[in-house]
Nucleic acid binder design. Structure first.
Length: 818
RNA sequence: GCCCCUGUAGCCCAAUGGCAGAGGCAGACGACUUAAAAUCGUCCAAGUGUGGGUUCGACCCCCACCGGGGGCACCA
């Protein structure tokens, strides 16, 4: 047995020592070091940590530990996103309070994080299910309510029959509930919303600040989700109706091509236009059939168009033409005005509808393509306007401008934009969440719970019927529900919905600064010290939901003067997933490889190292490609160096072997650069190189007593302290240092050691390499060029031909063009 | 259907427009060993998905196509 260290013994040895030293407690107010706020997305406490957590927290840890070594005052907190359905479902199954299951899991995860050597500041921990946290959820809710940013409305909402609760638009993926994958239906309910649509423009515009600092992919996804479109609203007179109908279009240039109008079947307008007419009963039949269809069917673009003619007519404002009005489900009630002008020649959906209903098609934009009426393919590209009165001959963009200004002058149109983003539906009909702090009084209406009465604590789960039944479980807690109205004192009722858990996570990064404060959500001074988050680390699964909501909260709080920045996360790193046989390894998808087994077999350090080394952080890791035993081997190799160093602590490195010193400082430089650009796999490769070079120096070079060997080995230990803390600590101790290596400080780079004595220059002819020579790195262009022209290999190749051109870039190459 | 990312040794992955290979896995051989494991050392392999273009020079920039991944998708 070659010398190696006992992983498990080493792990048990260092944990209590680290608890004692607490190297990652963030500094207090008077700390002179510059600050860094490194934040990992907090976990949901669903059982123990899994492989996905292992990757995410390994990456966040490298960043946090690096900045500590570089002399920053780093805040790296952790908490639990502890409200949510799984706890409630477990509680129903086990017939006990959801908090029991929740805190059991939290304790398990916390112990695992400690063992996994996560560099969290254990003095800054929060649990969103704790009243000391959700109290401030309620407080923020009331602040938003005051500003008109929280409101209630009736509407057809997404309803998951399986989870027995409503869902936000963002939680419906392709017509399925993102949590349970069951089809989502529509249900008409009175629900609470946050008015995120007030912030669409700013959410879009402020992304400019994030350019280059957030993954482009996430920015694109957010832009798509917000979905801005620009166009115009145009007024159409309706025969037999006093008020005109306003439609929204992105192509006002095609107004002359509008051959009919379509209103959303589920809109108020459709109902009104149909009422009292001969087709009213047919309309109702059609309306009912649409309502019965699931979202899944509705979303299918393959589905044939359906609709009903309302026997009413609108007047096209550009040409006075009388066009029929239809109702259909292909027009959405809650986008734009719920009514459109249909231009079948230049919009595929309108064309499909026109063909199905035998409605006329009129081309008004001339393109090379076939006639849409014949081909069935709408031409939506640019072209010259025809059949369009004063617009004839104009290009698409010119026509848009002209027609808007013409109609605007008559008060018939205005340029406007529309957004895909809808308001954020936050009420949930479940127990395990933050109660909405509103009291409903027959006389006074909605009455906010007075701030001094917060928190509105959840009633004891024993007094509540938790079983899903489509209404809020809180309604069954009679003692809790019935209260006096804070305004008039009459008997009133509490709101029985709880908040979406995304509310909890929309501001938790602020709470970390002030977890010890029980008189405010967060302390402005502390927030000014720490925020915004310098580095946020988490999965791309939250690219839209959580990040968009957090950005919205930050802007709303900014407007209320509660924070002094408008984007919460300066830099974002999205790690990939850990996959196996093509599917993600997470709790919900089934743990294919158990983290605890891997840790038992290979040790914490080897797993952390494997995660960091597997590839670029944003790429998925296929566990089949990872070799934890290779990591074990490398860590032992690194560790053995520390036993071969025979010089004393404090020996003058300047006197060490120059060749090894150069390797060390080059490595140091490259490691820093790689880490700061998130290329952790490259950083590891550089450490491996340094280990290899040091091994060689010990065995067949300057030898163990040389100070350069100590310098190299200490550098390895410090570099490894970011990735493999146990091994690094062992090395540091064997090198004669006191713990902890986590606080050793990043070695100072000696720039003078980065320059090479000699570099290899290449001589090319027509870009092909003909010979190489060793030259000084400071050689001039002209010197190098002279050398190239005098070179034997080049000369024989050249013969008598005179070079057409010579390109020289000292000291790297000369290219002779013939 | 639209948009984005991606394609380098058997595999995972590196290469400011300038010598295609840093590192690892797997493999082969050797040293140590009675032997094996462990360890140490040596070696092995691709011309960068395909076809064009720009350039003195392209894995890198541009265009098209093919394969893989992701996002959006009746939002007018």
């Amino acid at each position: 047995m070659h010398e190696a260290y006992d992983i498990h013994h080493v792990q048990e040895k260092w944990l209590p020592i680290w608890d004692e030293i607490a190297p990652f407690r963030s500094g207090k107010k008077d700390d002179p070091r510059p600050k860094k706020y490194v934040l990992d997305m907090f976990p949901y406490p669903s059982g123990d940590l899994h492989m996905g957590h292992a990757e995410a927290y390994a990456l966040g840890d490298v960043i946090a530990r690096y900045w500590v070594q570089k002399g920053f005052n780093v805040m790296h907190p952790i908490g639990w996103d502890a409200f949510g359905l799984p706890a409630e479902n477990a509680a129903i199954k086990r017939n006990e309070d959801p908090s029991i299951w929740t805190y059991e899991n939290i304790n398990t995860q916390r112990a695992s994080m400690r063992r996994y050597a996560c560099s969290f500041d254990w003095d800054r921990v929060l649990y969103t299910c704790d009243p000391t946290y959700y109290r401030w959820n309620q407080w923020i809710f009331l602040k938003l309510y005051e500003k008109g940013l929280a409101y209630r409305k009736d509407s057809a909402v997404n309803w998951c029959p399986d989870c027995q609760t409503v869902l936000a638009n963002e939680q419906v993926v392709a017509g399925l509930c993102e949590r349970c994958d069951n089809p989502v239906t529509k249900k008409k309910l009175n629900q609470w919303y946050f008015k995120i649509t007030d912030y669409t423009e700013r959410l879009l515009k402020d992304m400019e600040q994030l350019e280059g600092k957030w993954p482009e992919k996430v920015l694109t996804m957010q832009r798509n989700w917000i979905g801005k479109s620009t166009g115009a609203e145009v007024k159409f007179e309706i025969e037999g109706r006093a008020e005109p109908v306003v439609i929204y279009t992105t192509r006002p240039d095609t107004l002359y091509g509008a051959t009919f109008m379509v209103v959303a079947v589920d809109s108020e307008l459709a109902r009104e236009l149909a009422s009292g007419t001969s087709i009213e009963s047919d309309f109702n039949k059609y309306f009912d059939s649409v309502k019965a269809a699931s979202d899944i069917d509705r979303l299918s673009t393959e589905r044939p168009k359906s609709g009903i003619f309302l026997k009413r007519y609108a007047i096209n404002p550009v040409n006075g033409e009388r066009i029929p009005i239809w109702a259909s489900d292909y027009v959405l009630a809650d986008y734009g005005t719920g009514a459109i002008m249909a231009v079948p020649a230049h919009d595929q959906r309108d064309l499909d509808f026109a063909r199905a209903m035998k409605l006329p098609v009129r081309v008004v934009v001339a393109t090379e393509a076939d006639d849409p009426a014949v081909s069935g393919v709408a031409t939506d590209g640019d072209g010259k306007l025809i059949n369009s009165g004063s617009l004839n001959g104009l290009s698409t963009s010119e026509a848009i401008k002209k027609v808007i200004s013409e109609l605007e002058a008559k008060g018939l149109a205005k340029a406007t934009s529309n957004f895909r983003l809808r308001d954020w539906l936050i009420s949930r009909q479940r127990y395990w969440g933050t109660p909405i702090p509103i009291i409903h009084c027959e006389k006074c209406g909605e009455v906010p719970v007075p701030l001094e009465q917060l928190p509105v604590k959840l009633p004891d789960s024993k007094s509540v019927d938790l079983k899903p039944k489509g209404s809020s479980p809180l309604a069954t807690a009679k003692d809790w529900v019935n209260v006096n109205c804070p305004k008039c004192g009459a008997m009133a009722m509490r709101d029985t919905d709880t908040m979406d858990t995304f509310v909890d996570s929309s501001w938790y990064f602020l709470r970390y600064t002030s977890v010890d404060k029980d008189d405010r959500a967060f302390d402005l001074d502390e927030v000014k010290t720490w925020l915004p988050v310098d580095q946020y680390v988490g999965g791309v699964t939250h690219a839209i939901l959580h990040l968009l909501y957090s950005r919205f909260f930050t802007k709303a709080l900014f407007d209320m003067g509660m924070v002094d920045f408008n984007e919460p996360f300066t830099r974002l790193l999205n790690q990939g997933m850990v996959i196996m046989d093509g599917s993600a390894m997470s709790k919900s998808r089934g743990n294919l490889v158990r983290l605890s087994d891997e840790l038992e077999r290979h040790g914490v350090d080897a797993i952390r190292l494997s995660m960091v080394f597997a590839g670029p952080p944003e790429d998925d890791i296929d566990w089949a490609d990872v070799s934890p035993s290779g990591s074990v081997k490398f860590l032992n190799r690194a560790w053995r160096l520390s036993g071969d160093v025979t010089s004393k602590v404090g020996v003058d490195f300047q006197t060490g072997d120059i060749a090894l010193r150069k390797v060390t400082h080059k490595a140091l430089h490259d490691i820093s650069f790689a880490i700061e650009s998130f290329r952790f796999n490259v950083a590891v490769a550089r450490v491996m190189e340094l280990v290899n070079a040091t091994r060689k120096a010990i065995d067949s070079g300057c030898g163990g007593p040389d100070p350069a060997v100590r310098e190299a080995t200490e550098t390895v230990a410090i570099a490894l302290s970011l990735i493999a803390p146990y091994t690094a600590e062992e090395m540091w101790e064997r090198l004669g240092h006191k713990p902890s290596v986590a606080l050793a400080g990043w070695p100072k780079l000696d720039e003078s050691l980065l320059t090479e004595e000699a570099v290899t220059a290449i001589f090319q002819i027509n870009g092909k390499i003909k010979s190489r020579v060793e030259v000084s790195p400071t050689i001039s262009d002209s010197e190098l060029e002279a050398m190239a022209l005098a070179d034997q290999g080049v000369k024989s190749e050249l013969g008598s031909t005179a070079p057409k051109k010579v390109i020289t870039k000292a000291p790297k190459f000369v290219n002779i063009v013939l």
